[in-house]
């Protein structure tokens, strides 16, 4: 993420400039190329930033298109949570990132800002193990409750299998009325 800030030559994108003016130190770094804008935000200011991005008349980011995460194994901070925003009104886009350390993979939930974040954050929790503080019901969405670990993390063993039934299934694994007797 550091290398993204080392491009002072290009003129700052107007939206990113306003973001910097508004939040100052909370904006860790920005990057923009031909309308593709990215801002890395300090973890503590995420919700305030998102509310401003949604409500300011010049932004109007009324749609959260995606929440996902990236695992940069071996780098510090290890994780990045990525928010893709879109404005139906203005037809423009922005990308917000929050960097998270491995030993404290927590970030505030933005369900209060965009209710569509609910399932997206559950997906990021399920597959990457990102904990979203303030999420109304943070539980797995794709995998089953018995699954251990978060399979899209880079240190999840590629060959590891956790079947509910069949070879390798734990003894007496629950699967809902299997017995034909």
């Amino acid at each position: 993420m550091v290398e993204e800030s080392a491009q002072p030559s290009a003129p700052e994108d107007p939206l990113l400039q306003r973001l910097r003016d508004k939040f100052g130190e909370a904006v860790v770094s920005t990057h923009s190329y031909r309308g593709d804008r990215t801002a890395i935000i300090d973890r503590g200011s995420l919700v305030a930033t998102c509310e401003w991005l949604r409500d300011d008349p010049q932004n109007q980011f009324d749609m959260l298109m995606d929440v996902t995460a990236v695992d940069y194994l071996g780098r510090r901070p290890r994780f990045e949570v990525v928010y893709h925003l879109y404005s139906i009104e203005k037809n423009h886009r922005a990308r917000i990132k929050v960097a998270l350390e491995e030993d404290d993979v927590k970030v505030a939930s933005v369900v209060s800002v965009w209710s569509g974040a609910n399932w997206l954050e559950r997906e990021a929790w399920d597959l990457y193990g990102i904990q979203f503080d303030g999420h109304p019901e943070l539980k797995r969405i794709y995998l089953y409750e018995e699954f251990e670990g978060h399979p899209l993390r880079k240190d999840y063993p590629k060959e590891k299998r956790q079947p509910l039934i069949g070879p390798g299934a734990p003894e007496g694994a629950a699967d809902g009325g299997e017995s034909s007797s």
Partner: peptide
Amino acid sequence: THRQAPILRR
């Protein structure tokens, strides 16, 4: 998928 497996079995 493993999640579907119990359904198929049933």
